[in-house]
Design a protein around this nucleic acid. Structure first.
Lengths: 256, 256
DNA sequence: TTAACCATAATTGTATTCAAAATTTCCAAT
DNA sequence: ATTGGAAATTTTGAATACAATTATGGTTAA
């Protein structure tokens, strides 16, 4: 169902394991990624862990420093804005291409169904955290379904690599009820534009939809993100300035 | 002058070494990257080579297959078109942002100087291959100078990662005199739009400039690229179908 | 108390070793 | 000659060993 062929390689397992923990926020920004520690946690040797770390570094999740190892990349609030800016143009383009190609009947049905499910949650006065999480899951699928139809595999790859980067941050920002409503409304409009063949308009709506998410993020918790983020690494070999000495207290809380 | 701080790590050296050889075309698309072979060539152990390969894989240069190692990613002509499509929107956005921020006097002077140097070559009736190479170098700087001013470090990173990908292919396509002229004219227009504060127009011109490069590529050597490219990998774990048995004949021609 | 310095420990960078999988080679059978 | 298959070789995946650098901790002196 998942289309995932068996990845027996420990490097792959370590990669996914670590990536999830970064996106979860279990490894916060600036966190020192100890190779030995990770190897012990995963019950493998350092070799596959190193492969995984190298890949995550190339993808921007980690930042490397000579003889000092890897850290979770520190994104300032400006960085996140910048990432959302890129996401906006990439995903708007994906929507445009997808719209130009035309949506199949089954795809429209799936998107409609997803929208309906999200709407259900939106109209629940006091939705639970679980329901909000479900909304986010549906939201993710909605976007992805549209993008997957765009026919530009490389664009998809770029989107995938940018969409996950600020994921760790997103955990800090809770969605309010109005934001869910707003988001849902945007989805409805985008879907309407797509089904009526207005690819360019759909693209513009998607761009604004992502801009809205960006702005939502900027106004809310500037304190939290701003205090932790000191420096923009984002390129190999640059120094990053982070508190140092925050090693303890994270290793044991995994899988509590 | 290069701003490169000492990278003693063998992994880093191997990374750059291999990447250059991929972009050079010394390692053609689909080429099997033997860890042992590379290790012997570089006079280091397999360990740093593996790190380098993992990074290059994450960046899209290489494609990995379980128990079968790495290969140079095979791009079909459609892939290259797709990449140029993404480049167009990314670099147009960089131009727009750069224009909105405004260009400093010194930057304008530098861009003007670069344009002048390129113009010189354009107006030489029979320019040498060396001069064409110089044009390409200036061209690259021109683009880069504009982008670097955009203020979105993440966008720059994305551009850097996409711009190099089809570099190997670009070696197959020789620039004709008219194409140089066309390219130069576009630069002049873009620079004019930027200096007159028309950021959006500059962005549009850049988009078309890159589209022109894309189309130039599509019409020329479809045979060459089409015959070598069989399948679009571009995502980890997918199978790629390449001739197989093309190992010999490459190892010895390096550093002849 | 603080600063400096040396010793110790821990971590990273690299090489080597070993096992498992894949490729190649070679031989036999059709 | 071609095909099939089994042994041999090569290559990848992973673990371990070792060297070099960095972090830590404690002792001493001001």
């Amino acid at each position: 169902m998942d289309g995932k062929m068996e990845d027996n390689s420990l490097a792959q397992i370590a990669y996914e394991h670590i990536k999830v923990r970064i996106c979860d926020g279990q490894f916060p920004m600036g966190h020192k990624m100890s190779e030995t520690q990770l190897a012990r946690d995963t019950q493998v040797s350092r070799t596959p862990v190193r492969i995984a770390l190298a890949r995550l570094e190339a993808e921007g999740f980690l930042t490397w420093e000579a003889n000092r190892g890897y850290r979770v990349t520190v994104f300032s609030i400006e960085d996140v804005r910048a990432i959302y800016g890129v996401r906006a143009i990439l995903e708007a383009e994906a929507v445009r291409l997808s719209g130009r190609r035309g949506l199949s009947a089954v795809l429209v049905r799936e998107l409609t169904e997803l929208t309906r499910q999200m709407e259900e949650i939106v109209y629940i006065p006091d939705h639970s955290a679980e329901q909000r999480a479900w909304f986010l899951k549906m939201n993710h699928r909605f976007h992805r379904q549209i993008y997957d139809n765009c026919g530009n595999e490389f664009l998809l790859r770029q989107i995938a690599s940018t969409a996950d980067l600020p994921l760790a941050l997103r955990n800090f920002f809770s969605f309010s009820a109005e934001q869910l409503t707003e988001s849902h409304a945007a989805h409805v409009n985008i879907l309407a534009a797509l089904t009526s063949g207005e690819a360019d308009r759909a693209a513009g709506l998607m761009r604004e939809h992502i801009w809205a998410a960006r702005d939502r993020m900027s106004v809310k918790k500037t304190k939290r993100a701003g205090s932790q983020a000191r420096r923009v690494p984002m390129s190999r070999g640059k120094r990053i300035l982070v508190p140092a000495k925050e090693r303890a207290g994270i290793r044991k809380e995994s899988e509590g």
